[in-house]
Amino acid sequence: MTNTETPAVDNGVNVEALLGARQALTDAPQAAQFQWRATCEWLNGTHNRSTVTGFSGLGQEHEHRQSYSIDSDHPLAFASEDNGPTPPEIVLSALASCLTGGIATVATHRGVQLRSVTATIEGNMDLQGILGIDGDVRNGFGGVKVTYQIDADASQADIEAIVAQSQKRSAVFDIIANPTTIQVEVA
């Protein structure tokens, strides 16, 4: 590897472990098959609570260090109680989280020390879609814009390259940018 000579940086990312995992999963592709899960329970009105506890991968079941829950609701403007972010806001947060984690990882791999990284994310939506007013308007975002402010020991071009690479390797970026088959059933 050529990057062994780059100065050590500390962004709190264990790149060696990630590279080790990449090699291990290249050698054993079946271990790379993961399943992420959540459960969601209706509370009242549009208020509900999703909980994540475990996932599978590396050929076995895993538990998070603790259960995490995310409340979601609709805002007061929709005559709801606003007990949490709307689902689209959670999606936007997930995209920003995924890209930001990727930026830290890629930067560390490239020997770039980060000082601050802030993402501002905006998703435009025409409500005529979900309200069924105009069948030609999609329900989802018309477009999503993410703006990064990054302070790091690197040139503007290198920072742009890190941000570009983090999109290339982002799960949520792919999830939003590309179609996925979804099956919804009633058990």
């Binding site: 071009a157 690479q165 999109q167 290339k168 792919d174 940018a177 590309n178 179609p179």
Partner: peptide, 23 residues
């Protein structure tokens, strides 16, 4: 990326691919 009904679906990641290619 896919075919859904009578529509072809294309990735929304083009802007990034283009920025990457320019870089």
């Amino acid at each position: 990326m896919g075919i859904s009904g009578r529509k072809a679906q294309f990735s929304g990641a083009l802007t990034n691919l283009v920025a990457n290619a320019d870089l």
